[in-house]
Nucleic acid binder design. Structure first.
Lengths: 242, 242
DNA sequence: ACTTGATTAAAACACCTGTTTGAAACAGGC
DNA sequence: GCCTGTTTCAAACAGGTGTTTTAATCAAGT
């Protein structure tokens, strides 16, 4: 009768868990993620979460034991789901590096901003980035570091070995920073840029083009933005191996 | 006896308000700012704030009427104080634009990261940026927009009129984004970069140098990072000097 | 010295929070 | 049938929250 250790997973139907109203545990994870993402850990209440999930108040204790553990699990869940939603691009051998960079940036912006509207999973992860808790380290190792290393490798290819590791890392952070701003400070950016300009130029696709051009020029693998340079016309063909 | 409208300012000694233990209102504003910056709006309690400020619990109601209004006032207060602490650079006429960019970036990083440790005022403003409340619009108009316009003007000077307004704005956001990342996601950056490298290269001074070089190269006003270009040796003298 | 108004202090007030309880409902095994 | 373990439910708990009240204190003003 006394439930000292938590019920990991309900006993019924362990095979089929994709039905929407199926698993109360799954429903809790989903509702909790949404609520935490929107309001933050403190402001989100387990009562609202349970109400949104359509489960009893005691379920959070039954399945997770604690609000804190529910939060951690919901972060992991969101991150796993988001990884499934947006897979890393897989390039054919011989794809030019500048194309890879463009795809990578586009992919990252797509994941951050979403094609239609920013997904709550990213907002939840953003909270972890800004104020790390226990769930953060895992998030970094499983999710951010592989992407980061991939970006560094692409930049290394673009620089053709002319940049050492520290400079490659800083350049990678410059790329990420450019994208990250639109995600984290999107509201403020929206106040600084005219609305019509935002509607046209601040789409994931346009932003990806801008960030890619900006970065290629910065590391010397593409023409500068203000393109009236001395060595124009030939935008450095060395990095477009094809 | 009944205090329907709030006491705007205490009656005693309106002239001298710089004494540390002087004005309870001032002390509340300070303690509230610190507390809100560290824990966020919901997690910070008026009891802790009053304890830290050394005032009675009822003082927050007496001077501000409300927790929410105390928060808003503390944000404004922090922003005003931070503006006083780090004044905008004032260049002599004829200062080369690339020098201006370097100073601007250094100033922004200094303000964001602090020379010794990140100031709580910025952390408080950061929260507003990430999740705007009523205090945000005022913050943007009074604080961010002037800096943003200044940066756009510098970039315009560097591009020598070869970039239109939208592109200038996007370039400015690229500059801000590069700096912003280290502030907002500093912890995650710290996990991705080796500690010794961070200690040496992730200081405001070094970061300013990197961001400036990156940006100058991107808009075509400086040599690219991987500097083995075809038109090498002469890194576009139009904006050099120093 | 008395009055007046502003300020402080302690206690109490509702209300909401995360968490726990104990019993009821449900399943499958014998 | 009955029993067993799992899952749900409504109610209550203990503690903390923002806010309000009430009286006490203080500093002039006259």
């Amino acid at each position: 009768m006394i439930q000292n250790n938590l019920a990991k997973t309900p006993n019924k139907a362990p095979g089929q868990k994709n039905c929407p109203g199926d698993d109360p545990r799954e429903r809790l994870l989903l509702a909790a993620g949404r609520e935490f993402a929107e309001k933050g850990y403190e402001a989100a209440t387990v009562r609202d979460i349970c109400l949104a999930a359509g489960v009893n108040l005691a379920a959070v204790n039954y399945y997770f034991g604690d609000k804190r553990r529910l939060y951690i699990e919901s972060v992991k869940h969101a991150h796993e789901e988001r990884m499934r939603q947006v897979p890393e691009p897989d390039w054919a051998a011989g794809t030019p590096a500048d194309r890879k960079l463009h795809d990578f940036v586009g992919n990252m912006l797509e994941r951050m901003l979403g094609s239609d509207q920013p997904p709550w999973q990213v907002r939840l992860m953003l909270r972890e980035v800004l104020q790390p808790t226990e769930a953060c380290r895992e998030l970094v190792e499983d999710y951010f570091r592989p992407h980061f290393e991939l970006l560094v490798a692409i930049l290394d290819e673009l620089a053709a070995g002319r940049l050492d590791e520290p400079n490659l890392r800083r350049a990678a952070l410059s790329v990420i920073g450019q994208c990250f701003l639109y995600r984290a400070a999107g509201d403020v950016v929206g106040m600084l840029v005219p609305a019509e300009e935002r509607a046209v130029l601040h789409t994931p696709r346009e932003l990806a083009a801008h960030v890619t051009r900006f970065t290629l020029a910065a590391i010397g693998a593409g023409p500068p933005l203000a393109a009236a340079s001395r060595c124009d016309d030939s935008p450095r063909p060395e990095a477009s191996s094809t």
